[in-house]
Design a protein around this nucleic acid. Structure first.
Length: 1127
RNA sequence: GGGCCAUUAGCUCAGGUGGUUAGAGCGCACGCCUGAUAAGCGUGAGGUCCGAGGUUCAACUCCUCGAUGGCCCA
């Protein structure tokens, strides 16, 4: 377990080729062992050379992981039931496109929470999946084969076409799998589910049959954008490409209401449309239920009234219409609903269903037209939906080529768009035309041939999701969404407006819809729920090469005599199903349920966690929920009213380019993930994607930000390991019983361990709550700010020794900090943390240890080294150190103001702390030496009110005063701020102090104000909020001498380095200069010699004759230094 | 046309339940260190908090309307 040689494949030899590494060894050993070389009892911590790129390091880790088959091990962890399960479902990507940088985000999000849960002691099943059917695949193949639309495909041959599709799906599989491995997405890619495979399809057939038998799968109509030239429907993204601004007719017609009360005044209703050709198929009029409609009568002619929305009267009747028209009635839209009218054109006979009726619909707009909308259910989605709701008659007098029937009067045989002028003419003749003009608006055209598209009702198969929409909404409320508003808003709103799901496609490459119907009477229908059922129905074995895809499944061999009428033949309907149904069925189809693995699905349904992009809201998030809810108790743990198929969803947004532009092929701003890996590595990329901003806001992919953020952070982490820890520990420290207990270590160590414990807890809580950004930021900030900027900087010299308790404490502390930090960062940066953790612990992969030290879950093997110590934060110590650090910062600023280098010692610092509690105050005293050393002052004092240096000022607390004074708060605050120092001193002693504002008297409480101590006098003061640091800038001769001595040491050290001396070389030093310099050198001779390893120091007034003389400037003084190696 | 999100320093982002002088990192300027050096550290300058109204003693924060960008849907 602790063999230090185990697999540490990275750069064991020192990169600096035996230079400093070796000599430091001399030096250090000389210091601790009086010059005797001590045998190295343990192989060293591997070095992490700075010139080893992140990419190279990660590639080496990948090789090691491959050797260890670590992914398999991770997947198997706890599979024997020894751990509780935490199930992840993978939303399947299509592999017929190159993986892009946005996939790296998706993979990172999926991976990191799973990785975290493994470390938390769970078994995390996560089967990869591939989405292999559907239109994108077909389009890809169409393009490759240069086929033109459906006719082209059929001419080419469906068998061969589908074969091409099947191959096309795997075009980039190899690259996908390489990238997935490269970014450390640990998932079961060896046993993926593939939606085109027979087992998968059979499970879907089972699901579709289950829905069919429940009456939830039916044939109906769907309005689709349709190109009459190409003879095909267009998908939404195709339509989006073809919008153009056009001028269309804008026609108002006035239709007579049917007079249900017998003869009387003629009442007319004003209707607006931009598609006169659809008036032929008019079935209803729609009004908004809450809108006010006026019924007006012309003052000059009393024989009829006109109804329209009041808010539209100005626009339609003209400004000042009230002078020309009398308002006879006002109706709410809801009151008009149900009234009948006469349609404008009667060329088509109504089939069954309501017609010529006014209905109330929410979608009616009060912003244009007359507030009354004409409804033609075959030619508009809103119209169609309204038609369904009100069972309106369905007229579709336009054929698939976009033409009216030849026998129709006036417009017979005309293309639909060409009928508009003829119809307007006809309306005029019939005296229903009110007004005809034109309007400019966006209209879709076929992107291939520029034909205006037709919203056209097509036959389609539906899942009756409206029958169980309430159940879906109820299940959704139990889902925990990140961010929550996506669940309640985007997805919740969508569910509220849920309509039946059109699941069929008139295409070729997809799961065939398993419905067979009789060619003599199509109401004789059945669904086939398994291949076995098919075999029995058809009366023949499947055969070894059975393929349920088109065209095979539509061949004669899979048809049979209708068992109902015995006349017709049962044949499969021609449609395939929506690829979203494929992916939405994965919760059970990935395991070939219910034909196999019933126990498994029983255990692993529903999922604990899924994660996808926002674009999946209407996609996979919906299809998973819709299928599972529809199936109900046909799935385990899934009766009506139970949970959603997923318990927690993390939704991430898109990745855009550095300027916030969407990435696209046409813009040429797509980012190649491989180049990013090469330049920055997966760790930095993952860390950037997670930490730079919350993942649910669109992310601008900016490599500069990676470099300056995530990469810089990882370099700091590497340096802490290599430069602060390993290079010194390698001289002979390793964790042992000789290390002092944490409670016996210096306060600085206790502090950093306390911070570590707090950060550990924070990261754990954040990840538990699915806040990866919060977790990553907390750990990064700790490493950067607390460990690098403060702990290591202050503790540095303690690593130059090995044996003292002080040094052992420092090593043990830093070792603990680094080891635990690796664990906390492992979900984000899995490569470097694993490398480092193995070195630190003697071989344990970071991915198999507990995420936090006091984890309560069932015990698993983990390193005991350095771990298991107290992991509880000490808030008082944290607060005290924060205060010391704030004072140090203020003190440094004061020194800058005073223009005195930190190297120059000063006598005194006087400071005032902020409001901290008694426990923290007690802890400040022992930390004062840190402050003194940091600011290089001899004495640190804390000022009291009695000090002459200090004056008191009051700062009003508006929050407290506001409650008492209300409107007069500003006056009260001014009165408080004006209180004099004496009054405030009295207040501090507990004497009552009153403020009087506008006759209202109030006795101040401690909450009402904060007392600020201000410095005055000759000191240089820096104030930071309510704390301040005042420094005595006086440089006495003695202090000056000390400062000069420090300067001399600093210059000498630099000189040693420039001269090429090894750090352990002894020297003879000669110093010359003015009396101030020589005097200082004399006074501090001993100390200087110790610092620069000088055997002797010669101090003279001048040394013109010496060789190697260097002149140095010490502020306003000039001195000369000469050194030679003492051999 | 509808829904959701975003808009705070040059860049990336923080800013419970409204409360005094709006914070951090990077970048920039200046400086320190030279035994983490293809590193490390400090100090400082940067903001009409997208705009307009409103509520309130008090608005980055709450409300209304609008602008810009993004996604989804019609």
């Amino acid at each position: 377990m602790h063999s230090r040689n185990a697999g540490a494949g990275v750069a064991r030899e020192d990169s600096r080729g035996g230079g400093q590494g070796g000599t430091k060894s001399h030096r250090t050993r000389a210091r601790c062992g009086g010059g005797a070389l001590m045998p190295v009892t343990k192989p060293p911590y591997a070095t992490l050379p700075a010139d080893l790129s992140a990419n190279a390091l990660e590639e080496q880790m990948l090789a090691r992981w491959r050797d260890e088959q670590i992914v398999d091990k991770a997947l198997a962890l706890g599979a024997d039931g020894s751990r509780p399960s935490w199930v992840f479902y993978d939303g399947p990507p299509t592999a017929n496109g190159r993986p892009g940088i946005h996939h790296v985000l998706a993979r990172t999000v999926k991976d990191l929470f799973c990785r975290y849960r493994v470390m938390k002691g769970y078994h995390v099943p996560r089967k990869a999946g591939w989405d292999t059917h559907g239109l994108p695949v077909e389009i890809e193949v169409e393009k490759a084969l240069k086929l033109d639309g459906k006719q082209g495909i059929e001419a080419y041959g469906i068998e061969e076409f589908n074969k091409q599709c099947r191959d096309s799906v795997w075009k980039y599989r190899e690259e996908w799998e390489r990238l997935v491995e490269r970014v450390a997405h640990w998932q079961d890619y060896k046993h993926p589910y593939v939606t085109y495979e027979n087992n998968y399809i059979e499970s879907e057939w089972w699901a579709l049959k289950t829905l069919f038998d429940k009456g939830l799968l039916y044939r109906g109509h769907k309005i689709l954008p349709y190109c009459s030239r190409c003879g095909t429907s267009l998908s939404s993204h195709e339509v989006a490409q073809g919008y153009d601004e056009v001028e269309d007719p804008s026609v108002f017609i006035a239709l007579d209401l049917q007079n249900e009360d017998g003869p009387g005044t003629r009442r007319r209703i004003l209707v607006w449309t931009t598609t006169p050709w659809t008036l032929v198929s008019n079935a209803a009029l729609a009004v908004h239920p809450d809108l006010v409609y006026v019924e007006v009568q012309k003052k000059t002619g009393r024989d009829w009234t006109l109804i329209l929305a009041e808010s539209r009267a100005d626009a339609v009747l003209g400004a000042g219409w009230e002078e020309r028209w009398d308002v006879m009635h006002r109706h709410r839209g809801a009151e008009l609903a149900g009234k009948k009218y006469h349609r404008p054109l009667d060329w088509a006979e109504y089939p069954d269903g309501h017609h010529e009726i006014i209905v109330a619909e929410e979608f009616v707009s009060a912003d244009d037209g007359s507030g009354v909308v004409h409804m033609s259910p075959a030619f508009g989605a809103d119209d169609y939906a309204a038609g369904q709701r009100h069972t309106l008659a369905f007229l579709q007098p336009v054929n698939a080529r976009g033409e009216f029937p030849p026998e129709m009067p006036v417009i017979g045989g005309k293309f639909f768009k060409d009928a508009d002028p003829l119809i307007i003419e006809e309306l005029k003749k019939r005296d229903v035309l009110w007004k005809a003009g034109t309007v400019k608006h966006q209209y879709p055209f076929c992107w291939r041939c520029d034909t205006p598209l037709l919203y056209y009702a097509r036959t389609s198969w539906f899942v009756r999701t409206t029958a169980y929409a309430d159940d879906m909404m109820k299940r959704n409320t139990a889902v925990s969404w990140t961010p929550p508003e996506t669940g309640s808003g985007r997805f919740g709103e969508w569910l509220k407006n849920n309509i039946d799901w059109a699941v069929s496609r008139d295409r070729y490459w997809g799961t065939p819809l398993p419905v067979w119907q009789c060619d003599a009477d199509e109401t004789h229908r059945m669904a086939i729920g398994s291949f076995d059922e098919l075999s029995k129905a058809a009366g023949k074995p499947l055969g070894a090469k059975f393929d349920p895809h088109k065209p095979y499944i539509d061949a004669d061999e899979w048809s049979w005599k209708c068992t109902v009428c015995a006349k017709g033949t049962m044949r499969r309907v021609s449609e395939v199903i929506d690829a979203w149904f494929d992916s939405g069925a994965m919760s059970f189809a990935q395991w070939h349920y219910p034909f196999e693995n019933v126990d498994r699905v029983t255990q692993e349904f529903p999922a604990d966690y899924i994660a996808e992009g926002v674009d999946q809201t209407r996609g996979w998030f919906y299809s998973l929920l819709a299928i599972a809810t529809g199936l109900g108790d046909a799935l385990p743990n899934n009766a009506a009213g139970s949970a959603s198929p997923y318990r927690h969803v993390v939704v991430h947004d898109l990745v855009r380019d550095a300027k916030g532009q969407k990435m696209s092929k046409s813009r040429g701003n797509s980012v190649n993930p491989w180049e990013v890996m090469e330049r920055h590595g997966a760790d930095a990329t993952r860390l950037f994607l997670v930490a730079s901003s919350q993942m649910w806001v669109p992310k601008n992919f900016d490599e500069t930000v990676i470099r300056e953020g995530a990469s810089r952070f990882l370099i700091t982490l590497r340096n802490l390991y290599q430069g602060a820890f390993a290079q010194y520990a390698n001289f002979g420290w390793s964790p042992s019983a000789k290390d002092p207990n944490p409670a016996d270590r210096p306060l600085l160590d206790q502090w950093v361990l306390s911070r570590l414990a707090s950060v550990e807890q924070a990261a754990d809580q954040h990840l538990d709550a699915f806040d990866a950004t919060g977790a990553a930021r907390a750990v990064m900030q700790f490493i950067d700010d607390d460990v690098s900027k403060w702990y290591v900087r202050l503790a540095k010299r303690r690593f130059y020794d090995l044996e003292s308790d002080d040094s052992r404490a420092a090593f043990a502390t830093l070792h603990e900090v680094l080891t635990v930090s690796c664990r906390l960062l492992a979900p984000f940066a899995p490569f470097l943390t694993d490398w480092m953790h193995r070195e630190l612990t003697g071989g344990d992969s970071v991915h198999f240890v507990d995420y936090v030290r006091n984890q309560s879950a069932a015990g698993r093997g983990q390193s005991a080294v350095g771990i298991g110590q107290s992991a509880v934060g000490n808030a008082a110590l944290d607060a005290a150190m924060a205060e010391i650090r704030a004072l140090a910062s203020a003190g440094r600023a004061a020194r800058e103001t005073a223009k005195v280098n930190v190297r120059q010692p000063l006598s005194k610092l006087v400071c005032v702390t902020g409001p901290i509690d008694a426990a923290a105050r007690a802890l400040i005293e022992p930390l004062v030496p840190i402050l003194a050393a940091e600011l290089n002052v001899k004495v640190v004092e804390f000022a009291t009110s009695a000090d002459a240096l200090v004056s008191l000022e009051a700062k009003a607390n508006f929050r407290a005063l506001g409650k008492v004074f209300g409107k007069e708060t500003p006056l009260a605050a001014a009165a408080v701020n004006a209180l004099g120092a004496d009054t405030l001193a009295a207040f501090e002693r507990g004497e009552p102090v009153l403020v009087n504002v506008e006759g209202r008297e109030h006795r101040l409480t401690v909450d009402d104000l904060t007392i600020v101590r201000k410095a005055s006098g000759a000191f240089v003061v820096h104030q930071e909020g309510i704390l301040f640091a005042a420094i005595d800038p006086t440089v006495t001769p003695a202090l000056r001498a000390e400062g000069i001595a420090r300067e001399l040491v600093s210059r000498t050290q630099r000189l040693r380095k420039e001269t090429g001396l090894e750090v352990s070389d002894r020297i003879i030093l000669r110093i010359a200069g003015p009396a101030l310099v020589t005097g200082a050198a004399e006074t501090h001779r001993q100390w200087i010699a110790g610092e620069v390893l000088a055997r002797s120091i010669e101090i003279t007034e001048s040394m013109a004759s010496a060789t190697n003389v260097v002149t140095v400037e010490l502020d306003d003084l000039t001195a000369q230094l000469a050194l030679s190696k003492d051999s």
